[in-house]
Design a binder for these strands. Structure first.
Lengths: 153, 153
DNA sequence: CGACAAAACGTGTATATACTCTCATCTGAT
DNA sequence: ATCAGATGAGAGTATATACACGTTTTGTCG
């Protein structure tokens, strides 16, 4: 038996082409940069903007519920919320059930969301123009299927 | 009900459904967890495994070249490499051009890749089974188009 | 040859992400 | 009424990500 087999190189090349994880992460990196740049004038990252938007719809909302709605780990969400609180865009208050924390938008948060929406729209338009209308629809549908598939695994 | 209900709420709901950034990041989170869990027995995260695999193919390779190949920010890659070096899976040596750093797999790195490949295969199979053959092909094609589109923005 | 631009890389800072533990609170069964 | 188990949340640790800025080395051109 030789010390080291080489025949797995072609197999590794396949990984780069076919690995769902690698390719979806790569896409996420590329896309995130576009939205982060676009949202900079509002002092928001893409993640923060979508989180604020979710809060605006759901408020008052608990951390766990928000984590569920945004499909984010609860502890991750807690840390992301702390950042928004530090920016003065949300308030986090104890609920009736003292274990729960209820999240609310502040005035500054409302302003940031409003500013963010128009910036988001521009970024979204620029990207979807490149994808085409059909391409965008197909992509979003496929991503939804992917999340579903991942849940079932 | 209060008349204070915000008129832009429907618009915000659209964001959650149609925002490419939010949805691709969400998918990346879901998928990453599957691969991270699968690769745990090899002591690797998904990112680390794909990075090691890329190094195995390209070695010896400079940081910048590797960043290009994996479509990762150069500084991000540098930090990811440092972790693998700390684990003893790669070696980073100065090149002839003293500005450059050449990256090599170590024995331990080879072992980790080998172990990772079979674990990766299982995770990939489980996920693509859920997606179906066609679904997987379409998804990967769409993700490639997305990366292209993002580059053009 | 010498000034200067360009290339390759690292550091400081900040955010995003998730696992494991731990703590406080609540709820239901006894 | 009480206690065991469930539930909601935070803290500790580790990794992934990228921008702004700085450093060293190379290449280039007058």
């Amino acid at each position: 038996m030789s010390r080291k087999a080489k025949p797995d190189v072609p197999q590794i090349l396949e990984i780069g082409r076919r690995c769902v994880c690698f390719n979806v992460r790569k896409a996420a990196r590329a896309v995130t940069q576009i939205y982060d740049n676009a949202l900079r004038p509002a002092g928001l990252r893409a993640t923060q903007f979508t989180l604020l938007a979710a809060i605006k719809i759901l408020q008052p909302v608990t951390v766990a519920h928000l984590a569920d709605a945004t499909v984010t780990d609860r502890t991750t969400l807690g840390r992301n919320l702390k950042l928004l609180e530090k920016k003065g865009m949300i308030r986090i208050l104890a609920g009736e059930d003292l274990r729960e924390r209820n999240v609310y938008l502040t005035e500054r948060g409302e302003t940031a969301v409003a500013k963010g929406i128009s910036l988001w729209q521009k970024a979204q338009s620029r990207l979807t123009e490149q994808l085409g209308r059909e391409g965008t629809e197909r992509l979003l549908a496929d991503l939804a299927l992917l999340v579903e598939a991942a849940r079932r695994v």
